[in-house]
Amino acid sequence: MAGHGRGPDPVPNEPVDPDVDLHIPAQRDELRRRHAPVVAAVSLGGGIGAAARYGASLLWPTQAGTFPWTTLLVNVTGCALIGLFMVVLTELDSAHRLLRPFFGTGVLGGFTTFSTYATDIQRLIEEGSPRTALVYLGLTVAGAVAAVWTAASLTRRALAWRQR
């Protein structure tokens, strides 16, 4: 962490990048070790996460030109879950080394999507609904950041309370 121009970290030991953070010594091992199991765990998790997202889009389909509520809710839910998951993972002393790649990188990464978010905005603008596009753009960013912050803070507080 030192030498990267960072200020003091109030919550040390949590990686910046939940996919793989090469600044974290334990995760740097993934570069050296045979990583076929990690890639397989990410792949399996990604399939499960994407299937859940596809299921949500079938349950609550979005009509063309209307506000993409399903994608917004999928993304915000995934952001809340990763905030919770990464904090719990840091507190676990003996988490299996494939747990983060499987659930954080795979399931949650496959469940949430940035490409659908971007192309939905592009389509709304080109189909003549720039106001809906702008509200969708802002609500997703605000919802995602609020969800990850709230979930991580509440989880840290709950874990600290349990340890007292």
Partner: peptide, 18 residues
Amino acid sequence: TGLCGALTTYSTFSYETL
């Protein structure tokens, strides 16, 4: 839905921001 959806991520994006 499959490849691009899973290649991109909002959860990692927001967690890194946090």
